[in-house]
């Protein structure tokens, strides 16, 4: 019984992590750049949901979700314009530092605006729980899983079944060739950042109800996205989702049996062990290195 309960919690957490990791991989594939601000974008999405709830009292999360995602998409475009596009032809370390700088601004901006205390956003469809086969399932957990699944499916459909998705993939594979074929590469990159930030915003809203959001949550989240992507194979979209589910399951089980601190420490140590043994990730590298 407890195991089933833990599974539901783990899948819900993993679904939210998967959104974080997906946004990270989308930008990674499109630009070859690691977006260190991804965790802070999730945090920003959480606080945006909290702030919007102040303007629209009693609005459930599913009403706020499209608003948060739209605003975060704009923020994503701003990030690409200030922190990626001016540095695209320089060594990759420049983008690492510029996105770290964006993270610093977001994190401390949130501290100044909202204070350092944890905040919670509204649940998607109100609180409460229902019972299936004697199992107490929080409505929020099911709603989080459904929403994340919907967003992941939408993202998959966009990339595989639309002209825009083909252009985005072409840009990711070979920007030079894509440009030669008449694809507006710069807009595609900005759009990818917008998508990545929108997914981060959604994850922020979903996570901040059960787990709260603090301004300093970003570095923990980017590490988890990074671990998920490393486990799932650098650059692989399905791998990112699987990796996110795995680390969430690990976290939920170890937190339950030992403590949250032990879970986090074990996760990082496991990562170091993976890197020591298989630097290319557990399932190999999906994207070729662009150094």
């Amino acid at each position: 019984m407890i195991l089933a309960q833990l599974m539901v919690n783990g899948i819900a957490l993993g679904a939210a992590y998967a959104l974080v990791a997906l946004g990270f991989v989308l930008v990674l594939n499109a630009t070859g750049a690691v977006n260190f601000a991804q965790g802070d974008l999730v945090m920003a999405g959480g606080f945006l949901a909290v702030a919007l709830a102040g303007f629209i009292p009693d609005a459930p999360g599913f009403v706020l979700l499209p608003l948060v995602m739209a605003l975060m998409a704009l923020l994503g475009i701003a990030v690409s314009a200030t922190a990626y596009l001016p540095l695209r032809n320089r060594p990759p370390v420049g983008v690492f530092i510029s996105t770290i700088a964006v993270g610093i601004i977001l994190q401390n901006g949130a501290t100044v605006l909202f204070g350092p205390e944890p905040k919670a956003a509204a649940p998607l469809f109100g609180g409460g729980a229902f019972t299936i086969a004697g199992l107490q399932v929080p409505t929020q957990s099911i709603a989080v899983i459904a929403t994340a699944a919907l967003l992941i499916a939408g993202q998959y459909w966009l990339f595989t079944h639309t002209q825009l998705g083909r252009r985005l993939r072409a840009t990711a594979q070979d920007p030079g060739m894509a440009r030669a074929c008449g694809i507006p590469v710069t807009s595609m990159i900005a759009l990818t950042f917008a998508l990545g930030a929108a997914l981060a915003g959604a994850a922020g809203l979903l996570l901040s109800n059960q787990f709260f959001v603090t301004p300093s949550a970003g570095s923990g989240l980017i590490l988890k996205a990074y671990i998920a992507v490393t486990i799932g194979g650098w650059g692989s979209l399905p791998g990112a989702v699987i990796g996110a589910l795995l680390i969430a399951a690990f976290e939920v089980v170890v937190s339950y049996t030992l403590s949250y601190t032990a879970a986090t420490a074990a996760l990082y140590l496991a990562l170091l062990a993976i890197l020591a043994v298989r630097p290319q990730g557990l399932f190999g590298e999906a994207s070729r290195r662009r150094a």
Binding site: V34, F36, P92, V93, F96, S219, G220, I222, L223, Y226, I227, T230, T261, T264, A265, Y268, L269, L271, L272, A273, L275, A276, P279, R289, A291
Partner: peptide, 25 residues
């Protein structure tokens, strides 16, 4: 031993992870 031969981004994030472990400790 595990982190230095990693490529740039792996190295950056692995060193960040080590920092988090020490902070927790």
């Amino acid at each position: 031993v595990p982190v230095l031969r990693l490529e740039s981004h792996y190295f950056a994030l692995a060193t960040l992870g080590i920092g988090q472990v020490v902070l927790l400790a």
